[in-house]
Simulated assay, not measured.
Amino acid sequence: MLYGIAAAATALLLTALLAAVLRAPALRLRLVERRLVERRRQREVPLSGGVAVVVVAGAVAGVQEWGSAGGGIGGLLVAGGAVALLGLVGDVWRLRRRVLAAGTAVAAACVVPYAEAGVGTGLLGVLWVVGVTFAFRGIDHADGLAGAVAVVTAFGVAACAAVDVMDGIAALMSVLAAALTGFLLYNWHPARVALGSCGSMSAGFVIAVAAVHVRAGFGLGESAGVLFALTAVVCADAVLVLWSRRLGGRALPRSGPDHLAHRLRRLGLTVPGVTLLLGFGAFSAVLTGVLAHAGRVGSDALWWVAGGALVVVFALSRVPVYADRRSVSPQVRASLRVRNG
Rank of each mutant, 00 (worst) to 15 (best):
G138C: 08
T153H: 08
G118E: 04
H213Y: 00
D324W: 03
L267D: 05
E33W: 10
V297H: 02
H189L: 07
M201R: 08
S197N: 15
R23F: 00
W128K: 12
A162K: 12
R339E: 12
D324A: 09
V193E: 01
T231R: 00
R250G: 11
A282L: 01
P272M: 06
R40C: 10
V53H: 09
A107L: 10
G156C: 06
L277D: 11
G156I: 09
V319S: 06
G58V: 04
A261C: 08
G221E: 10
A238P: 03
R98S: 14
E38T: 10
R333T: 01
A108Q: 03
G295L: 00
G90I: 07
T133M: 14
S327D: 11
L88M: 04
R215H: 05
A251M: 11
R28P: 01
A109N: 04
A159P: 03
Y3R: 14
A301Q: 09
D300E: 14
R40L: 07
Q64S: 14
V319N: 07
A251C: 10
D91I: 07
A194I: 11
E65D: 00
A115M: 10
A208Y: 04
V206F: 06
G219V: 06
A292G: 02
A117N: 02
M201W: 08
N340Y: 15
L180W: 06
V78T: 07
A251F: 08
A261M: 02
V226I: 09
A16P: 04
V152P: 01
P46N: 01
G225K: 02
A334T: 11
A161E: 02
V319W: 02
T270E: 11
G217N: 12
R35F: 07
G120Y: 10
S329M: 04
P25G: 12
D140I: 01
